[in-house]
Design a binder for these strands. Structure first.
Lengths: 165, 165
DNA sequence: TTGTTTGTGTTATAACATAACATGAATATA
DNA sequence: TATATTCATGTTATGTTATAACACAAACAA
């Protein structure tokens, strides 16, 4: 994973994250002959509004506001497409979706989730993957997909809890 | 994690798993002054029927058959208790529950989940934890809880797919 | 321009989980 | 033993997340 991920820095220019994500998505869709339709682009943008994973139903009002149909299948279909393209990830422990900061190449996703500010930051899972591979190999298990979700406190929130106490 | 876990061996004496789990649970509850009520014990037994995680709603008919109330809260309460005691784990990616093979001491749980036979086997997450700790420390994240779920093919099913092809 | 694929609208429902309050059983305390 | 208290369960209702199924329309390919 590249280190362009702003991670838990609270002061990064998030508009840049969004713009970058949309640009990359458009570019990749062109390359892959996939259609980034208005609904899909809007959902991607909404998911990127911040680093806090959003539930599918939280997206519906915004879809309605934009004049689209806003029944659940609409948003789930868009999310499914975006996941297939690697533009967003689903966080199983939260039933929520978050933008992927580096959709340009396939990768295993892992997340650090702050239970205080609710941000989820993708982490470098290469070392974790090596450990998992070794464990799996021991028992002869063939890995196809890895889900790593770590819950805890991000640096910002640790500090806030410290000063607050 | 001890290596008494039968893992993906299809020919282990599973009744032994069940008996052992129930005995350990009773013992631990006695030590901890917790009440392993009939409902809780039944749910634990049901979850242990095999190594395939069961959904909460799949337990309801068996509860009804045993003469208990079988509304969702009943089973969710039992599952909550069993999770608190460390007797069962929840698999977030499956919305399902599975017995813990070594509830005697607290531990981080990780699972290898076979998408063919649906069995979920707990794995030794110590190496994974070390990798995660290192990654988390780099960004100053304080870990409180780890969720590791690996999907793939177990040895048995790899063989079956090979012979079938 | 015709057929085919792909995306969307729409209705309904499935699957998973919890809130809230009443009742009863077990335990602790007087 | 009586009484208070805590804990577990029964019960009804509802909240939350996700998908099935089919109709229609837009894009694309031949």
């Amino acid at each position: 994973m590249t280190q362009t991920d702003p991670g838990f820095h609270s002061d990064h220019d998030h508009q840049h994250c969004i713009d970058q994500a949309l640009l990359t998505a458009r570019d990749l869709c062109r390359q892959r002959r996939q259609r980034l339709t208005p609904i899909r682009e809007l959902v991607l943008k909404l998911v990127w509004q911040n680093h806090q994973p959003l539930g599918a139903y939280e997206l519906l009002p915004a879809l309605a506001a934009a004049g689209f149909n806003s029944a659940p299948p609409t948003v789930y279909r868009a999310l499914e497409f975006l996941q297939q393209q690697g533009f967003v990830h689903r966080i199983a422990s939260l039933n929520a979706y978050v933008g992927c900061p580096h959709p340009d190449r396939p990768h295993r996703s892992g997340f650090l989730i702050c239970h205080r500010c609710k941000r989820a930051i993708e982490l470098d899972t290469a070392p974790v993957h090596r450990a998992l591979s070794a464990s799996a190999e021991e028992v002869g298990f063939r890995i196809e997909q890895e889900l790593v979700e770590v819950v805890g406190l991000c640096p910002d929130c640790q500090q806030q809890e410290a000063t607050h106490a």
